[in-house]
């Protein structure tokens, strides 16, 4: 029996989960929808972005919400020359850890610098939000970070 007799098909298995985000992540996502970057103050006084419900060092509840950014510093990065369908950009970009102004931790997001030769650790970048009408309270409300001064 020739192997070509066997059929072949593409399938998709999908579950439409909805997660409850809680008060702290909820505040962060609400901020994104409103075009603001928010962190929380940990028990030791440091500002954690993205915010957590508990201070990762002490386990204590975190405190007040603190606005950070919109600029920050690239702490490390990796260039993505061939973005995948699920990636936040359909053209080459960098995944980067960005320490926003006023924050003591780094946020992982995309940097649209235009090329790996136009990005360096220590560079200053600033947030580029999607248009307000497209924002829904999601990390994807941030389209990308871009070099400060608009080099990209």
């Amino acid at each position: 029996m020739p192997e070509s007799e066997a059929l072949h098909a593409s399938h998709r298995l999908e579950y439409p989960y909805a997660r409850s985000v809680g008060p702290v992540i909820g505040a962060f996502l609400t901020g994104l929808r409103d075009g603001r970057l928010l962190g929380v103050r940990g028990s030791g006084g440091s500002v954690i972005v993205p915010p957590t419900e508990y201070d990762p060092d002490t386990g204590d509840d975190t405190g007040e919400v603190v606005e950070v950014g919109p600029g920050g510093v690239v702490e490390s990065w990796a260039w993505v020359p061939d973005p995948l369908p699920k990636h936040p950009s359909d053209r080459p970009f960098a995944w980067a850890l960005i320490r926003l102004d006023g924050a003591d931790t780094a946020l992982l997001h995309a940097v649209d610098s235009g090329g790996p030769d136009r990005l360096a650790t220590g560079d200053r970048v600033t947030v580029r939000f999607r248009p307000a009408a497209e924002r829904i309270g999601s990390m994807a409300d941030i389209e990308a970070f871009v070099p400060e001064g608009g080099a990209a």
Binding site: H8, A9, S10, H11, R12, L13, E14, Y15, P16, Y17, A18, R19, S20, V21, G26, L29, T30, R33, G137, S138
Partner: peptide, 13 residues
């Protein structure tokens, strides 16, 4: 914002 849609998807052959 209180919820986030997080669909889990598997494409397979």
């Amino acid at each position: 914002v209180t919820t986030l849609a997080t669909p889990i998807r598997l494409d397979f052959e």
